[in-house]
Design a binder for these strands. Structure first.
Length: 433
DNA sequence: TCTGGGGTCCTAGGACCC
DNA sequence: TCTGGGGTCCTAGGACCC
């Protein structure tokens, strides 16, 4: 038995905790660079705002309908997520944190009064963290996801399902006819694991609803689509095929990529940007105690603008594997020098670290001086500590440049970011009586 | 003018091994 | 006419997730 606990419109809900005046208003949170909508309040959904819709297409709603647009404040959301996950874990013995706003709780078979406990956890998260959430309970993860959708839909649109399915929805307690009704009213493409492409292929064969999917014969599904979809079919039938992942598996790849605030026409700002991306990626790498055996760097023009297109990329092997910012920046700069071509308006670039291996499995170079590596890692440790205490970029490699936030045109736009209420002492909210 | 970022897994096909 | 059997590794492409 599994539970899926999911924060409603999570980013918007985080913003509303600290700005209650946003309650009841149509609100969207924008992606990095204020590019497109990545979270929408129910009111914004009602206005027809689509997930991923570009911001410039929403401008008219700002004036006409009072749509509030906020820049993403991931530092705030990450901290709110930690708080929510801690409370969610109280529902059962095992937790898998699946994304910033969702967690599965597993091994619930022996839990007594499961519904009552689920309601209690939901109430606690709402009271202590301020995030409204919904809970789906079912014998498989896919059905738990589906029940979570039902719980949300019935909360948002009262009357769409029996009222007892709102907010906390338990598959186990639904009579057979209601289960079928729920599956029939869920589109195949809304099932976890069925994306847009497969939904189209299924529809071409007359498989439209989740009920249709659940009735497909396994061998046919496997031969036509593969084991992934077959697992989904079986999960819809109530046979658990997707196990819990209790500890996040080690990363196989770490990336830092960004769209630029303004297009870049020259090499110099591009090198600054890439230096910074490599620096960020290196920090993530060291946090997980990994080293990279290869570094991939790319830059390209906007896929949306007309005009000459450029897509440059190259991979550099790192021998020996390293987590040293200086070495990674050097590789990134070398790569960028080798692919750069003048005459293009570049919209995006990035650095990806690959062939990751745990530091303790490091292969030493027989011929290199033994103490060099140790000195380097002590330097990185010191750098991480200084930056952790005094703020990102307090100490950095010179090639990231010294321009202020406003001067460096390549930096992303974030014109509507709210304060980092819970993680930055200078931005903490002040209560006045 | 303006369109995100960061991941994972599976499969097929080719190269290569003994 | 007839040309083995059993593998691994790598890559590219396609699909999915939030």
């Amino acid at each position: 038995m599994y539970a899926l606990i999911d924060g409603n419109n999570f980013y918007v809900s985080c913003e509303r905790v600290f700005r209650p005046s946003l309650q009841g208003l149509p609100v969207v949170v924008l992606s990095n660079n204020d590019g497109c909508a990545i979270a929408r309040s129910d009111e914004a959904k009602a206005l027809g705002v689509k997930m991923g819709q570009p911001f410039f297409q929403l401008q008219h709603l700002v004036e006409l309908k009072g749509l509030v647009c906020l820049s993403a404040n991931f530092e705030l959301y990450g901290d709110m997520s930690d708080r929510m996950m801690t409370l969610a874990a109280g529902l059962g013995p095992r937790q898998e944190i699946y994304s910033i706003d969702e967690s599965f709780i597993g091994d619930l078979a022996g839990v007594r009064d499961l519904n009552r406990r689920a309601w209690a956890v939901r109430a606690r998260i709402l009271q202590w963290v301020g995030i409204p959430c919904c809970i789906g309970l079912a014998p498989t993860k896919t059905l738990a996801k589906l029940c979570n959708h039902v719980a949300k839909d019935s909360e948002r649109k009262p009357g769409s399902y029996p009222p007892e399915l709102a907010r906390v929805c338990n598959w186990q307690e639904m009579p057979r006819a209601l289960r079928e009704d729920v599956l029939r009213r869920t589109m195949a493409g809304d099932v976890w694991g069925i994306g847009r492409r497969i939904a189209v292929q299924l529809a071409e064969r007359g498989v439209v609803t989740a009920l249709d999917v659940s009735r497909m014969p396994g061998p046919m599904v496997r031969s036509n689509w593969g084991v992934v979809l077959e697992r989904t079919v079986r999960e819809l039938q109530g046979i658990s095929c997707i196990p819990m992942e209790l500890a996040p598996p080690p990363k196989k790849q770490i990336a830092c990529t960004r769209s630029f605030g303004h297009g870049i026409n020259e090499l110099e700002p591009l090198l600054e940007a890439v230096s910074e991306f490599a620096t960020r990626a290196a920090e993530k790498l060291r946090k997980q105690d990994l080293r990279a055996g290869a570094l991939h760097v790319f830059a390209h023009t906007s896929p949306f603008r007309p005009g000459p297109r450029f897509y440059g990329q190259t991979t550099t092997q790192l021998v020996p594997p390293t987590s040293d910012t200086k070495a990674l920046v050097r590789a990134a700069l070398g790569g960028m020098h080798s692919i750069y071509q003048p005459g293009f308006r570049l919209a995006k670039a990035g650095v990806m670290l690959m062939d990751l291996a745990e530091s303790r499995h490091e292969q030493h170079d027989l011929l290199a001086a033994a103490d060099v590596g140790r000195d380097q890692s002590r330097l990185m440790e010191a750098m991480d500590r200084v930056n952790g205490r005094f703020g990102k970029g307090t100490v950095h490699v010179a090639s990231t440049g010294f321009a202020s936030q406003d001067e460096a045109g390549w930096r992303m736009r974030q014109e509507r970011r709210t304060p980092r209420y819970t993680t930055n002492i200078d931005e903490i909210p002040i209560a006045r009586c």
